[in-house]
């Protein structure tokens, strides 16, 4: 316990980096995932195929592999990103695939009759998407989307693989320095649980709100 207290500052920075990755990763993944989901249900075949190919690659390659390929592979092509943005980009690309597939199940839940009604009322395809389909789809998938969010929190630890000083990396570093793996990593575990609990509360309140709107 004293080990944790003497490294409180470092620990706080680790948590800050983890939260930063979660925030950036989640905003990016929601935007990219929504675009991908719309592409998946597009009437144009090429667009559907492109989105399906993206999902095939990014959902099926383990995230540590993607991380290492992005950080140590891309420089071979002459592209070098700093480490923190690299980690954030990989997190966005990986979780966008999951956001997309989660949201798609919501899109499929919207009845065809509603689409027909919207078109006959004069909404174009994008207007229909924006005002009718997406709001209903998002409301239907709040809970499974919360699972993706918690997945993201835990997957930020993979950034440790490429030297980003987030919570897992920091804990590991302190554990090696202090030769006390159990106490330090135990502290990190508690911190992850707290972050997830806070997010779970947020998701639950969102769920109650959409329950009223339905």
């Amino acid at each position: 316990m004293t080990v944790l207290l003497s490294h409180l500052g470092e620990f706080a920075w680790g948590i800050a980096f983890t939260v930063g990755l979660v925030v950036l990763g989640w905003i990016g993944a929601m935007i990219l995932g929504t675009v991908l989901a719309m592409m998946r249900v597009s009437p144009i075949r090429t667009v559907r195929v492109v989105a399906a190919a993206y999902i095939l690659v990014f959902r099926n390659v383990p995230i540590p592999v993607q991380m290492v390929l992005f950080v140590f592979g891309l420089p071979l092509l002459g592209i070098v990103f700093p480490l923190f943005p690299s980690a954030a980009i990989v997190l966005v690309m990986y979780h966008a695939a999951f956001v997309c597939e989660t949201l798609r199940s919501g899109l499929n839940a919207v009845a065809v009759g509603e689409l027909e009604a919207s078109r006959s009322l004069g909404f174009g395809p994008f207007g229909t998407m924006r005002h009718l389909v997406l709001p209903q789809a998002f409301a239907a998938v709040v809970q499974p989307m919360g699972n993706v969010l918690i997945l993201l929190v835990k997957n930020t630890s993979v950034a440790a693989v490429v030297g980003v000083a987030e919570l897992t990396f920091t804990a590991d570093k302190i554990a090696i320095e202090e030769v006390q793996a159990f106490a330090v990593l135990g502290g990190a575990a508690v911190a992850y649980v707290v972050i997830c609990l806070v997010l779970k509360r947020f998701v639950a309140s969102l769920e109650r709100r959409v329950a009223f709107s339905k």
């Binding site: 440790a160 693989v161 490429v162 030297g163 000083a165 990396f169």
Partner: peptide
């Protein structure tokens, strides 16, 4: 820049 293995440092 802190990596966990020497191999990664060499690569970097």
């Amino acid at each position: 820049v802190v990596f966990s293995t020497m191999t990664q440092c060499m690569e970097a």
